[in-house]
Design a protein around this nucleic acid. Structure first.
Lengths: 337, 337
DNA sequence: ATGAAAGCGCTAACAC
DNA sequence: GTGTTAGCGCTTTCAT
């Protein structure tokens, strides 16, 4: 691997000059520049990013911790950030936190050890306190998908409570009163928030809360299936069910059909997240939109503007969810009322 | 940020000793080790990965170029690699190639500049020749999802021709002869291979190839929709359609239903990839399984064994596709025969 | 078992 | 406009 030194020798100039043409930092005489560029080409020179970072004390890379790499949800979010960052010539270093505290902290440490200029943190297990401490620690980061009052300006999130609320509220508007809920793992703040919204909507409509109508799944389709089964086997099937994400809604739909029941005629269904797929499913799923891409972009812009001093300064940090109305919710049939 | 030097001073030992305890490389007297670890804790020391890499000339990180970050396909593959690499304490640096040559090459250069110990390359635009050159260039890499005879030992792929073949073959077994095909962008080798397999199956069954029964989509659901529409509008609807991926199959399904037609009673459908979702769709999609996770894992193992000298040495490089039989294919109804 | 010292490849003052 | 030089934080011989 050719070094800057070899280039400088071949070109007959000093190290500094080569560095100048690489970084396009100072004025360099065109003729000199040409000589250097020639030499670089001849040697197949490729800047050593590692050395650059060490010497300049910045890496031009931002670290991103996601819960998982698989599935489309996080990829979509990452993609939003990546496109913006790339435009600004910043790189993205991705690490997975695997939804457990040890790995999440390791991931953060590792990104910091790499001297990432800033971090985007999508965490599930780590405590708010840890993050609050981190913020005092002179490390630049944004938190995504979590709202922490003490560091609100660093948090970019969707109002999950409201999302849970409008999902159930919509079902209620369609006349439903026996509404079951399939939740995500409740130790995750977004799952808990969505459920809270559901309860609130019930309460606002004077529908008594029945804990047997809540199933704690894990955000995976199979748990939606199980959850639905448990409702179906309870003697009286609910007329509608709200799910904490689209995946589980599809699992639930599967169980409903297995019973020979139809969606939405027999049971109405509402999801959450609005994954790509939900526009093409059958029936098309009514669901709460999670602005994945926009949140990813906002996170990138936060960093671009605060840390690198470029790009727009987005003021919006809390996104308001909207219900995407499609074909999985129907008016409650009167014979069931 | 504390440095090794500060640690050494606080602990009253030399730089070298601190380095030893960090890397657990040489023997260090327990008492000394304790002093050092104490000092590290007190200072909140965190090894500077950048400096380590520069000094040791290895980064313990493998670079991974994917076409895109969004969608679930690449995420699943990455996830397979990540889990194995993580176990071996290697890190993953992910870059997106965005399906165009410039970005793909930039991504590779950038990963090399970071002194990644090895690369996993999932490319679409770059030529085989470029990769063959690269292999002579003393850089360690595996190619995923592409088969290049000259560097076959570095290629991990699915036999896409065979995949296309069995999809169509299955349709033929079910009595279909008017089989349409919705392809991916044909400049992508996997799309071209799958189509080739389709044609071969037709030929083997003495079904004349009709170019009007092939629509070139782009692997996105919406193009499947369009493609299906074009077949539907052609005067005579095909009795079955094979799609080059599941997403497009869902787009096609949407178009079929819009016409009031049913799957599989009126039109049979077969997909490709077997995305997570296809187990939960309605009807459940029959499709060719793409072993995403296994391929990701094999790529990781390739690197682990060849470059880092650890982990199993997988000999299998070409995966054989299987058809997952579900509910979207039906026997051709005799009145249509 | 531990220390001294020479780099790793580059940037960033500072001279000229 | 270009060269000199001192680091950046660490690993790694080579001594001791």
């Amino acid at each position: 691997m050719a070094t800057i030194k070899q280039v400088s020798e071949l070109a007959g100039v000093s190290l500094a000059t080569v560095s100048r043409v690489i970084n396009d930092t100072d004025q360099v005489k065109p003729a000199t520049r040409a000589k250097v560029e020639d030499a670089m080409k001849k040697l197949g020179y490729r800047p050593n990013f590692i050395a650059q970072s060490l010497a300049s004390n910045k890496s031009n890379t931002v670290g991103y911790v996601v819960p998982e790499l698989h599935g489309s949800f996080f990829g979509d979010m990452l993609s939003g950030s990546e496109r913006l960052l790339k435009k600004a010539k910043k790189h993205l270093f991705i690490a997975a936190g695997h939804s457990n505290e040890e790995d999440e902290i390791k991931a953060i440490e590792s990104l910091l050890g790499r001297r990432c200029d800033a971090l985007i943190l999508h965490l599930e297990a780590v405590s708010n306190d840890y993050l609050i401490e981190l913020s005092k620690d002179n490390v630049d980061f944004v938190v995504v998908n979590r709202y922490i009052p003490e560091i609100a300006d660093r948090c970019i999130s969707l109002d999950n409570v409201k999302g849970g609320y409008i999902a159930t509220k919509t079902l209620i508007r369609y006349g439903h009163r026996d509404i079951a809920y399939i939740s995500g793992s409740l130790w995750k703040s977004d799952a808990a928030d969505r459920l809270a919204g559901h309860k609130q909507a019930l309460q606002d409509a004077n529908i008594p809360y029945n804990r047997l109508r809540v199933f704690e799944g894990n955000f995976q389709a199979s748990s939606g299936y199980e959850g639905m089964l448990s409702f179906l086997n309870s003697g009286q099937a609910p007329t509608a069910v709200a799910c904490a994400n689209d995946e589980m809604a599809y699992g639930a739909a599967d169980a409903i059909r297995e019973r020979g029941l139809s969606i939405p005629d027999d049971i109405s269904l509402v999801g959450f997240d609005n994954i790509e797929f939900s526009r093409f499913s059958h029936p098309k799923l009514s669901t709460v939109d999670y602005p994945t891409r926009a949140i990813g972009e906002t996170a990138a812009n936060w960093i671009l503007s605060r840390i690198y001093g470029q790009g727009p300064f987005d003021a919006t940090h809390i996104f308001m969810p909207e219900l995407i109305s499609r074909d999985s919710i129907a008016m409650l049939k009167s014979d069931k009322a």
